[in-house]
């Protein structure tokens, strides 16, 4: 149907979702969309993204405290450090586009606490994926599921955002999540 309607390159994914062995996302198409109105200016996008990264960082830190296995604790620490770096790049981007010198403290005061990255809460993630918190593979798999969910959310939100610059920013964040997901896959393969 699409090929005959002017779509230039159409590919049929053979086997459909059953043949898809990488991480999937779950939930309805509007999951997490309430975090964005669609009218956000670039600065607003960065504030919401920062708060989602903060939610995930706090989650990894709380899991680090809870985990009994030392290697798993180290893994959670690494995952939270990655989120901290991601937050730093969001904060820098905020100052760049604002042409200002907002301090980190001032910026954080402007950021509202939202749901965890990907639009679900900590408890919802744990209930959904039920990971063995003593297993490195389970922990990486959980992190990959969250990243897949975040990538999914950012890409759905991109379609809703009206401001072109805001759209560019959310696309950039989505692509960073994609890279992050790939690096977690490599980490999983190395175990």
């Amino acid at each position: 149907m699409l090929a005959g309607k002017g779509f230039k390159r159409v590919f049929n994914v053979a086997g459909g979702i059953k043949a898809w062995h990488a991480k999937t996302a779950i939930g309805p198409q509007d999951l997490g969309m309430d975090l964005f109105t669609g009218k956000e200016e670039p600065q607003d996008i960065l504030k919401v993204a920062y708060s989602l990264e903060q939610g995930l960082c706090d989650f990894y830190i709380s899991m680090e405290i809870e985990a009994k296995n030392e290697r798993v604790r180290d893994l959670f620490a690494k995952l939270s450090e990655i989120e901290v770096k991601h937050q730093m790049s969001i904060y820098k981007a905020y100052n760049e586009i604002s042409n200002g010198e907002t301090s980190r403290d001032e910026f954080e005061k402007m950021v509202e606490n939202k749901a965890l990255e990907g639009g679900l809460s900590t408890r919802e993630y744990l209930d959904l994926f039920n990971p063995d918190l003593n297993s490195e593979i389970d922990v990486i798999s959980l992190a990959m599921s969250i990243e897949a969910q975040a990538l999914d959310l950012y890409q759905r939100v991109s379609a809703k955002i009206e401001n072109a610059k805001s759209k560019d920013i959310i696309n950039k964040i989505a692509n960073e999540e994609k890279v992050h997901l790939a690096s977690l896959g490599k980490l999983m393969d190395s175990l």
Binding site: L2, A25, Q29, Q149, Q155, R156, A159, N171
Partner: peptide, 27 residues
């Protein structure tokens, strides 16, 4: 390919999409 340069189109029913879909897919 950056996500904004391609379309991943899910043509299944909403309940199937909700259960599991390729990240970034449009339903």
């Amino acid at each position: 390919h950056p996500g904004e340069e391609i379309t991943i189109l899910d043509v299944r029913q909403p309940s199937e999409y909700q259960e599991s879909h390729i990240p970034g897919a449009t339903l």
